[in-house]
Amino acid sequence: MPEATEKERSGKVVVRCTVNGRDAELSGFPMARLLDVLREELKLTGTKEGCGEGECGACSVFINGKIVNSCLVPLMQVEGARVVTIEGIASDEQLNAIQEAFIETGGAQCGICTPGMVMAAVNLLDRNSEPTESDIRAGLAGNLCRCTGYMKIFEAVVRACQHSGVKR
């Protein structure tokens, strides 16, 4: 295939994985950041870059159910992985309980940290459906927010637990 040869010459690779439940073939340099590939190849721009060094959490995604900083994951390492981004959190028009709670409590202000923060909160509740305040603080400590002072975000997590408590 001429396309493959072209990619070989350019040093690019093709990696197969699933993204938000769909099969995906991602092409890029082997060291390309998953963050960039998601945003540029798949146009999944909900995943944000805040620092590029794993400090702010704006680029949080799930790989095989675990939360990671997509700015620190090279494309080559997502071969065969299940990737979930913020675009995979709400099902169609039905928001996740965390997303609803963020809107209700004012957990989102400028919104740039919000997708990552929502991912961290969803991940926290997946691991622990009844987090204490200190669990919430620890669970979100990898996600920096400069607008809220975090209070409304804590409230959102608590409210989401209450709303979804029965279901869990």
């Binding site: 721009t45 675009e87 928001l95 809107i103 989102a108």
Partner: peptide, 21 residues
């Protein structure tokens, strides 16, 4: 009244479009 943020839904779903998007 604590009216919800106008663009809240776009922000919590990652659909809000920032310049780098």
């Amino acid at each position: 009244k604590p009216m919800p943020r106008k663009e809240g839904r776009e922000k919590v779903t990652g659909r809000a479009r920032y310049i780098d998007d």
